[in-house]
Simulated scan of single mutants.
Amino acid sequence: MTQQDELITQLSRQNRLLKQVLTVAGAGLGIMLLTAAAYTENRGKFSEIDVERINIVTPEGKHEMVIANHLRLPEPVIDGKQSKRSGPQRPSMIFYNAQGDENGGFIFDGKLDDKGKPVAGMHFSMDRFGGDQQLSLGHYESGGSMESGLKIYDCGLQKDYDGLYQAYEKAPAGPERDALLQKWKDAGGQQTNRMFVGKTRGKSSAIIMADAKGKPRIMMLVTPEGQAMLNFLDDKGEVIQSFPQAEQGAVKAK
């Protein structure tokens, strides 16, 4: 083999080696680019974002949490059924269970009324499975007074009273309409307060326990003036026993 042939053979080998190196390098670069693209697609880092609503969802698209302004709140879902959200719409954080039902949330608002007094509040609630809220922690201001505390409620299951209130609203005035309202209440449709622990609008520190109809029966209070009392009430709200015994001129609890 001549010197020229050896040179050609050597160059051919080097060319094949270079192609192999370039192939491996290209494959590696491709993998790096794909990995970077996947990383960019699945994760992002932001210093600041402006949004009206954020949906936290499962891979299947079910809501697990929604954060929204007052205009973009989702309608409530209980026992798999969507209904209309009642009352003023407020900025909220809504939680959902694995069934896709709403099971609690956090709402807040605050503004001044026509007289320049605050109308404000924050409300954190926890719902029972298949029903409405059972426990809430809140602060509420209106009319120049405020209330802050923990509340525990009674409320039935949506499936037990579903449709009864709608039927009551559509029924003409009369015994049948009254019977539908009572049936809705008996089925657990009416939410009742069973316990309150906090500060009342009368500025008393209080623990208030009520019966299944929401009527207070035991009230433990400390008034702003420092008077401590334990009151027992009948179903009409009248004090039937008080400790210590009320004295003439004693401050009435609020």
Results as ranks from 00 to 15, higher is better:
77 V>A: 01
188 G>W: 00
251 V>S: 04
233 L>V: 07
170 K>L: 13
203 K>S: 11
96 Y>F: 12
186 D>H: 04
54 I>F: 07
23 T>A: 15
135 L>M: 03
66 V>Q: 01
38 A>E: 14
47 S>F: 10
184 W>M: 01
184 W>H: 09
63 H>I: 02
75 E>L: 11
230 L>V: 13
126 M>K: 06
244 P>E: 03
219 M>N: 09
73 L>T: 10
11 L>K: 09
236 K>E: 15
237 G>K: 10
74 P>E: 01
118 P>L: 00
25 A>K: 11
194 R>E: 02
184 W>K: 13
153 Y>T: 06
145 S>N: 12
33 L>E: 06
113 D>R: 02
197 V>P: 13
238 E>V: 13
73 L>M: 12
75 E>W: 08
60 E>M: 15
211 D>Q: 10
244 P>I: 00
84 K>F: 13
47 S>D: 12
214 G>N: 03
6 E>I: 02
190 Q>I: 03
239 V>W: 00
164 L>K: 01
125 S>V: 13
66 V>R: 03
192 T>A: 01
190 Q>F: 02
211 D>L: 04
136 S>W: 02
241 Q>F: 14
243 F>C: 02
115 K>I: 05
215 K>M: 15
29 L>I: 13
63 H>E: 09
61 G>E: 03
239 V>L: 04
94 I>N: 07
128 R>K: 07
10 Q>P: 00
138 G>Y: 01
100 G>V: 03
140 Y>G: 14
77 V>M: 04
12 S>Q: 15
125 S>D: 05
184 W>Q: 10
225 E>F: 10
64 E>W: 08
218 I>W: 05
143 G>E: 12
48 E>K: 07
103 N>T: 13
191 Q>N: 05
241 Q>K: 11
28 G>D: 08
219 M>A: 12
156 G>K: 13
177 R>Q: 12
